[in-house]
Each structure stands twice: as C-alpha cells, then as structure tokens.
Amino acid sequence: MSDIVLELQNVSRIFGEGDTQVKALDDVSFKIKRGEFVLIVGSSGSGKSTLLNMIGLLDKPTFGKVILDGKETTTLKDGQVSQYRNEKLGFVFQFANLLPDLTVLENVMLPQQIQGISEDIRQNATDLLIKVGLEDQINKRSNKISGGQAQRAAIARGLVNRPTVVLADEPTGNLDSVTAGKVVKLAKTMAKELNQTFIIVTHDKHQFPDVDRIITIKDGKSYEEENTMEITV
C-alpha cells in the first residue's frame, strides 16, 4: 500500500471565459501521506474552498490531476465519482449539515447505507457516536441537538466508512471557542486513534495547533508554511 493517499498534480481551476475569466487555483501540487493531519489555510477568496471541492471530488479541475488512493479521479464518470466519494472520503462541513429529517444515528449510518453495507451498520455508527460522546443523543432528531453536538455527529459520519481522507471545511467556524476547542481535540484524538488522514480547511490556523503540516493558499497558489517555501509555482 502506497504511503501517499492524496496527490494533486498541477491542478488549476478556471471559472468563466474571456475577459471575465478567473483563475481560482493556479497550478497547485502537493502530496499528503496516510495518517497526516494537514491544515489548508487561506483568507477569504484565496481559493481554499475551490481546492477543497477538488480534493473532495465535488468539482473537476480545468487542468491537472487529483490522485486519490492511487487512482486518477478526473476521468471518472459521475456514478464512479459518487462511489469514490462515498468510499474514500469523509466530509465534515462548517454547519455540520446533518440531514434534519433523520436522527443522529441515522445520519451517521447513512454513508454505509449508501455504500450498500447492511451488516453491523447500526453498531458501527453507535460505537462512533459513543466515541464522540453522543451516546445520549443517538435517537434525537439531528435538528434538535446543539451546534457542537451536531459537529461531533458530523465527525462520526465522516469517519464511519473508514475513509482514506477526512475533509473538514471550517469545522469550527460556526462554534464558540470552547466548543471549537473540544471539536479540534476530538478530531485529533480520532485521527491518532484510527491513523486517519485529516485535511482541515480553515481561515484561522491558530485554532489547530500541533498539526503535521500547514499548506497555505494565496491567490490560488499553494505554499508549505513550515519553511514558507513555495512548493509548486
């Protein structure tokens, strides 16, 4: 098994045409190893959300390649991309984005149900919810729990399929500082316990101390922050 779980090769994303053309990502390349806890940092409009969409297979690059778990994904068809997202990626969104019509448990079970797994899904989801400290919220409707609890449930949902990479988009952006701290601690604990690769996109790197790497996005380009060296131009 390769140690590299995600590789971006010269990824560019251009929106619009002619004079209105905007280059949201400009020749971005980097590699992420299994088990790394990586921060992607950038100010508003830097291109970090576009980068997240590329990594999350929610959008396709105009140029370049996104290689996830050894497979080049830009040529995959819609159904294959959906399957790949389901199996290889776990998402944690800024607003948790649990489905309000389902209970907390059902939300966490959902990725496995979509994958077609029928065995032990309730137990797996319950185990994860216990790990994130939501054992007493399992059967509550997901819109009846607090923002912090919802974000913890979202982390459990992101992990339930044992994905190659968990992508978190401003996971603490909607939380107060105390709750945000707890969520960060939980994410780190889970990453360590499960040897899980985490990529967190944020505008505030100070909320995530002690990460393995920080990639800064500025004007659509990526920089490795530890040595402030531009890794690809």
Partner: peptide, 16 residues
C-alpha cells in the same frame, strides 16, 4: 436542495 447536496457529497448517486 441542501440535503440533496449533502447526500451527493457523501456518495449518493443520481439514481439514489
């Protein structure tokens, strides 16, 4: 719309 987006993001196919 949002729920559909979330479902698609976590792997639901168009047919789902």
């Amino acid at each position: 719309t949002r729920e559909i987006g979330v479902m698609r993001a976590i792997g639901a196919k168009r047919k789902d």
